[in-house]
Design a protein around this nucleic acid. Structure first.
Lengths: 210, 210
DNA sequence: TGTTGTGAAGTATTTCACAGCC
DNA sequence: GGCTGTGAAATACTTCACAACA
């Protein structure tokens, strides 16, 4: 039913789910047209995206809102909780785990690590910051599945390798380097400065074109 | 020379520039092969990406490191400073403007706004947080070019519209909504929870496939 | 009637492969 | 001899358009 789904489709699926949030009419239906209008895409694209995972619309009617929502949650893998560890107790990591959506989407921060002795032992949210030296033991005990890697580039490879060794399944990487982990481990890179660069690129291009 | 450059190419250009950072051998050269190895792409892709902007390699030799670096900086529009304002003095925005790369890439935070009276007037870095009500006046005075929009979704449309009205040229948007600005204004959306969803999607898919 | 699901057509992006130049 | 620049081929992604059906 599903083979190789492009990243662009996954992004759109997240959007569709988010769009559904605005719907109070639980028992109602949405058409691909309506969904398309809320994301910036086309009705055909919506239908194609969804069709990769089965056909759960009703011709002439659209998609049942409540069913579509639960299907999307299942497809995105957020119909169950995820045990997440934050490594690097800086601002970004903290921003992320404090997002209301973080918890609302089923991500649960079960451990926070840092190597700075001044930070170790402090409270952060409902967690006490642990010494990064205890990473393996703690991650195994707590059955961590996802790691948010928010450490300096120099430390990132090491932390990633150790996390993968103890069975972590995926990494959200804020370090501006390409992690060298086995291909079975998905890594999602986030680089905020790069996003700014995309902006200055677009503006410069437009200016140059006149 | 350049027409419509895909987003994927722009991302890779940023990577190439970042790769060059590791090079001490300023006067030396890099081949497309080496560049490809540092990003996760192919030599042909590197050459194609660069060829959109002219041909500045030497056959048989590769690209001069120092020249390539300055070309990339020019292409990405970071061969000049950018005047940036942060709207929403929460953790993410602060994380971003405190990144060493933020300044190193020429982005200069010239104003910070928030609507929370408890925050207005406080210092943050080398800035005093301004009342969001004064946004138009301050942005015009300070000739802000880029806005980092890190406010709740409800406020985002309004802030974006006001910023565009006073001549802002681009927006980095952390609010999980589609901003409704004129098409000439580039908007770069960042949604960290969506990145996590891409991760749980990938893992769930792999698990389902067995 | 209205809207899905989907092959087929159309675009966009990547990869190939090789002539051309250092 | 080595490596770029680039058309041409291959692949990936999106849009079209329409049969199927609630």
């Amino acid at each position: 039913m599903t083979r190789k789904i492009p990243q662009s489709t996954v992004r759109r699926l997240s959007h569709y789910l988010r769009s559904l949030e605005g719907f109070e009419d639980e028992g109602g239906t949405v058409s691909s047209e309506e969904l398309a209008a809320r994301g910036q895409t086309t009705a055909a694209q919506v239908r194609k995206d969804l069709s990769h995972f089965g056909s759960f619309g009703k011709r002439g009617l659209g998609y049942r809102v409540d069913e579509l929502r639960s299907r999307l949650r299942h497809i995105l893998g957020i119909d169950r909780p995820w045990r997440v560890a934050l490594v690097g107790a800086g601002r970004i990591g903290r921003a992320l785990i404090e997002y209301p959506d973080f918890r609302a989407r089923g991500y649960e921060c079960v451990a926070i690590f840092d190597s700075d002795p001044d930070k170790v032992g402090r409270r952060l949210g409902d967690q006490t910051i642990r010494d990064a030296a205890t990473l393996e033991e703690a991650m195994e005990d707590l059955q961590v599945e996802l790691v948010i890697l928010a450490v300096p580039a120099e430390a990132a490879h090491d932390v990633a390798a150790r996390a993968v060794d103890v069975g972590v399944k995926g990494i959200l990487n804020f370090a501006p380097i390409r992690l060298n982990v086995p291909p079975r481990i998905p890594v999602q890179d986030v680089n905020l400065v790069m996003e700014l660069e995309a902006l200055s690129f677009a503006i410069s291009q437009a200016e140059e074109a006149g």
